[in-house]
Computed example of a mutant assay.
Amino acid sequence: MSETDTTAKPAIAMPLGLFVYLMLYGGMTVLAGVLAYKQVQLVPTDLAVESGIFAFLILVVISSTVSQLYGQKYATRIVWLGFVPLLIASVLMQLVLALPPSVEMVNGRAEDLAAFEQVHNTVWRVWAAGPAAYIVSLLLNIWIFSRLRGSGEGTTIGLMIRGAIASALSQAVDSVIFITLAFYGLFPIMDLLIGQVIAKVVLSIVLVPFLITGGVKLAQWLDSKNIEAS
């Protein structure tokens, strides 16, 4: 056997910040669908918001951060790669629902079993609506964020403004698509739809700019540590 046959190929270099965000991104795509089953009231109004918004905003921050530091191409790629954990999670969920429960659970924890099956058997519309809203809104977020950047790097204030505008517009679109596909016909959706749009737009303006700025600094710090260790 020749030397070249026994020599391991060098690993493909990846910035540590990009690697960490890629891992976090995959987890958030799955968690957003699970959390979406519960609607949270926006006190003191009667408006509501589905809880998946919190994980989804993290997806927006990550995609914008990756676009800022590593380019629109990489940001778009992780959006498409986000379908992988979504697909695996949905397949595993159907497998678990199809498998027979243990005797101990049937005899001693029947209420827990019924609650688990009720939630996850009725969440299929959420799992179906999620990818549709996910792909449209996140690709739109990346596109708007990148277009507003222009040809220059810009300032921190510019980064925050771009992040707020891109997030607000894309999340409004996401709300209309997701709420309509997931819940239309199950209950009156107008309060939820209005609450979702308002909450996402407000959070996009108030919170997302600071999260993106922090996300960029964190990724830069991780990348610097990666360089020092190499």
Rank of each mutant, 00 (worst) to 15 (best):
L18C: 03
A32P: 15
V106R: 09
K9I: 01
A89N: 04
Q39H: 15
L87M: 10
L97A: 03
L87D: 08
E111H: 10
L57K: 04
L22E: 15
Y25H: 02
T6A: 08
L47R: 06
S102T: 06
L35K: 08
L81K: 08
V103L: 07
L86Q: 15
L16T: 11
M93Y: 00
D5K: 15
I58V: 12
F83W: 05
G17K: 00
V30A: 06
E111N: 05
V106I: 10
I78E: 07
A48R: 13
T65S: 07
P85S: 04
E117I: 01
S67M: 10
A110R: 06
S67T: 13
V91F: 15
A110E: 10
K73G: 03
T76Y: 11
G52Y: 02
W80D: 15
L59C: 09
K38Y: 14
A8W: 07
V60S: 10
G52M: 06
L86S: 13
T6C: 08
I12E: 14
I53T: 06
F116H: 02
M28F: 15
V40H: 11
V103Q: 08
K9N: 07
Q118N: 10
M14D: 03
S64Q: 05
E117W: 02
G108D: 14
A110K: 03
G52I: 07
F116K: 01
F56E: 06
A13N: 13
V84C: 15
P10A: 02
S102C: 03
S51A: 09
T122K: 01
G108S: 04
P44Y: 00
M105H: 03
L24Q: 13
V84D: 15
L97F: 08
A48L: 08
I78C: 06
P101Y: 09
F56L: 05
A110V: 04
L95T: 02
V79C: 06
I62K: 02
L16S: 08
